[in-house]
Structure formats: C-alpha cells, structure tokens
Amino acid sequence: MSLDVILVGLAGVLTSAAPLLFGAIGETISERAGVTNLSMNGKILLCAMGGFAATLATGSIVLGFLAGAFIGGLVALVLAFASITLRQSQVAVGFVLTLLCRDLSYFLGNPIMGATGPRLSTLRIPLLADIPGLGVLLFRQDIMTYLSFLLIVGVWIFIFRTRPGLLLRGIGERPSAAYVRGANVNRLRYLYTIVGGAIAGLAGPIYSLSVKAGWKGTISGLDGMGWIVLAITIFGGWNPFRAAFGAYLFSFLQWLGLVLQPALPGIPSQVLQVAPFPLMILTLLFVNIGNAEWVERSLARLPERGRKRVVKILRALNVKPPSALGTPFEKE
C-alpha cells in the first residue's frame, strides 16, 4: 500500500471521527459542569433524522445543522430540567431519553426513509491542500471536519485557559465554592448542558448530511454510535485532546480492521471492530485501579521504595472525573 493511499485513508479516519468528536466534546462540556448526559445514543439518531429532514424541507444544509443543534439542545434541556430543577437521577433520565429519542427518530423519520438529499461537499483549502502529505491529510476535508479540529483546540482553550472555562470547571468540581464566588451554579449548569447538548447534537447532521449521508431508519448504521461517543468521553478523561485521541483511535481501528481484512484471514472481522471497547475498559481500569482497596492492600506489602514508585505511577495515571458529576447542587 502506498504512502499516499495510507494518507488518504488516514484523512478518511479524520473525517469519520468528526461526529464522534462533536459528540464527545459536547458531552465533555456538559460533564465538566457536573451533568452526565446519557441520552447521546438516541440524541444522535434524532438529530441526524431531524437535521436531514430540515435540509430536505428547506434545501439548506446550514439549516440542517442548525436543526441538529437545536434538537440536541432541546433534549439536553429536558435532561437539565429533570435533573437540575427536579433533582432526578441524571443517569435514569438520560437513559430514558436515549431510548425515547431513538424510537422517536424512527417514528418521525419514516416518511423520509431513503430520500436523497444534499450532502456536505469537500472544501479544499487553497495552498494548504497542496502541501505534500499534510495537504492530503488535513486540508481536503469538509467544513465540519475543519470545525472539529477547531473544536478540539477551541474547547480546550476555553476550559483550561479562559475565565468562564475556569468557572465551568469550578461548578463541576465544587459547586458550593463556585457559588460563593458568584456563579449561579444551576443556571450555568443549564447553560452548559444545553450548549454541550447542542454541540453533541451536531454529530447527528454530520452523519446524515456528510459521513453517512441520508436517513435509512433502523439501517442507517447509527444506532450504537452514541454509546461509543460516551465511551470516548470517559476515555478522554474530560479533556478535549484526550477525547480527540480516543475518537481518532476508534476510527483508526475501524479503518485498520477493513484494511487488514485480507492480510489477516485468521482474525474474525469483528475483532478489530470491537477492539476499542476492551481498550476503553482497560483504560478505565488503569485509570481507576489505584483507588481500589485490594491494590492498597497489596501495595502495603511491598517494600518501601517499590511501593512509592508504584503509588506514584498510579497517581499519575489517575484521572478523576469532575467531583460533583451527577450530583445536584444545593446551597446548604
């Protein structure tokens, strides 16, 4: 396989990771504010259907994306209301929403089954697209893929470098302290849940208007993507760069699976497709294992020096979720 083919393949990996990125980064924003939005799987389907329907009805791709973001935000609003205002379990409400949205998308999407509509076109960036190697890889994508690059960097800067981002981390970490410093915690949680939901909602139209253009109901090949997105969010440790790594890894392994198919006849085709999941589980294992009681117990038996080294490694690996994730805020 020539280098060029590989580069083009990798460029495809970047494209197919774009919706995952929007989903995972949207979820990261929401979870950074302390709200787990488990509705992702159904939401992506509903947004994909809604976005596609909007584009079909209006002929405008932009409106399709807006519709996706709107629906994503709306679903997030329901979750926010149920979990922040009514203080119901985020996991329970999110889970119900994920099933509800899925069936809703199938029911409402029935009339537009298999319709052909406009599709996002590729946007070569002049000059940059001609850079050998990099040009093929990065600069012959569609606009949403470019936006996904910007999203990674932009959201990282927002979360870790800006003043509102600091506050965002604050409300997810210790809402009472953020409250004392002037944050209207619940209002901000609403805001970030909805914003995160809207960004994640864009993943839907990215599928239905670009990556897997069209709407085919149950055979759209989207059912399950949301769970993958959630897994990537966790894998990403609430950091856009790590989430990006997760999304790219997932797409890469998918691609690898089909590229290697003839080369590795002994390996069942399912192996590389599900590889990301054991990988995610292993990552979670490494990240969390330091907190386990039995680890502590076995560590206590180690000689002093070795123990310190292991403890240090485990601490370095440990990625903690936002401390207040999943818990409602109440000022005393």
């Binding site: 470098r161 800006t162 003043r163 509102p164 600091l166 506050l167 604050g170 953020a178 004392v180 410093r181 002037g182 944050a183």
Partner: peptide, 8 residues
C-alpha cells in the same frame, strides 16, 4: 476563579 475580568 470568581474575579471578574476579560476572557483570558
């Protein structure tokens, strides 16, 4: 955190 000011 909590001090008003510019974006960055």
């Amino acid at each position: 955190l909590g001090r008003k000011g510019g974006l960055f």
